[in-house]
Simulated scan of single mutants.
Amino acid sequence: MTEQHTDRTGAPVSIALDRTRAVSAYTVSTQDGALAGRADFVDPPGAPGERVFFHTEVAPEFGGRGLAGLLVREALADAVRGNLTVVPVCPLFAAHLKKHGEEYTAGGGRFRRPRPADLALVEETVRGGGDA
């Protein structure tokens, strides 16, 4: 999955799903291929159909271009396409869903509040060699 977007400056960027690292992520890259940011997630092994987003980061030199918002929106759109329930551990995802949750569910999205087991899974994933 790779989607083309335009950032706030009008520059083209690509958002892609990266499963090649220990921690899966949606990444955003500039037109010249520079990695600008990522939204890390884990798909819980005991809960098929769920995706736990736990960290989103954009490199400081790419700040102010709206890339974090593009990452969140594209990751959520992909969750709808994949019929996945989103678990927003990441504060950015949680804030977005708090503000736009009704719109997201009206468009077919599903999300639920994080549980202690989700937090434990994130901690185990990161401690187990993740790139977050």
Results as ranks from 00 to 15, higher is better:
Thr2Ile: 10
Thr2Glu: 13
Thr2Ser: 13
Glu3Cys: 02
Gln4Tyr: 10
Gln4Asn: 00
Gln4Asp: 02
Thr6Gln: 01
Asp7His: 02
Asp7Leu: 09
Thr9Leu: 14
Thr9Ala: 15
Ser14His: 02
Ser14Lys: 01
Ile15Met: 05
Ala16Met: 01
Leu17Arg: 11
Asp18Trp: 12
Asp18Pro: 02
Val23Leu: 09
Ser24Met: 02
Ser24Arg: 12
Ser24Gln: 07
Ala25Trp: 00
Tyr26Val: 06
Ser29Pro: 02
Gln31Ile: 13
Asp32His: 12
Asp32Ser: 12
Gly33Ile: 04
Ala34Gly: 00
Ala34Cys: 07
Ala36Lys: 02
Gly37Val: 13
Gly37Trp: 11
Asp40Lys: 01
Asp40Gly: 02
Phe41Tyr: 12
Phe41Gly: 09
Phe41Arg: 11
Val42Ala: 11
Asp43His: 02
Asp43Ser: 08
Pro45Val: 03
Gly46Leu: 10
Gly46Asn: 14
Ala47Asp: 02
Pro48Phe: 05
Gly49Phe: 02
Gly49Glu: 05
Glu50Ser: 04
Val52Cys: 05
Val52Pro: 08
His55Cys: 03
Glu57Met: 15
Gly63Pro: 11
Arg65Ala: 09
Gly66Cys: 10
Leu67Ser: 05
Leu67Val: 11
Ala68His: 07
Ala68Lys: 00
Gly69Phe: 09
Leu71His: 13
Leu71Trp: 10
Arg73Asp: 11
Glu74Ser: 14
Ala75Val: 02
Leu76Cys: 06
Asp78Val: 10
Asp78Leu: 06
Ala79Lys: 08
Val80Thr: 08
Val80Phe: 06
Gly82Arg: 15
Leu84Val: 12
Leu84Ser: 05
Leu84His: 03
Thr85Lys: 08
Val86Leu: 12
Val87Lys: 07
Val89Gly: 03
Pro91Met: 14
Pro91Leu: 12
Leu92Ala: 08
Phe93Asn: 01
Ala94Ile: 01
Ala95Ser: 15
Leu97Asp: 00
Lys98Phe: 01
Gly101Leu: 04
Glu103Asn: 09
Tyr104Pro: 00
Thr105Gly: 04
Ala106Met: 07
Ala106Arg: 14
Gly107Arg: 14
Gly107Leu: 10
Gly108Glu: 07
Gly108Val: 14
Gly109Lys: 06
Arg110Ala: 15
Phe111Thr: 06
Arg113Asp: 15
Pro114His: 08
Arg115Gln: 15
Pro116Cys: 11
Ala117Tyr: 00
Ala117Asn: 09
Ala117Pro: 06
Asp118Thr: 03
Asp118Arg: 05
Leu119His: 07
Ala120Leu: 07
Ala120Ser: 06
Leu121Met: 06
Leu121Ser: 05
Val122Ser: 03
Glu123Gln: 14
Glu124Trp: 05
Thr125Tyr: 04
Thr125Val: 01
Val126Lys: 10
Val126Arg: 10
Arg127Met: 09
Gly128Cys: 05
Gly129Glu: 09
Gly129Trp: 00
Gly130Pro: 05
Gly130Arg: 05
Gly130Asn: 08
Asp131Glu: 15
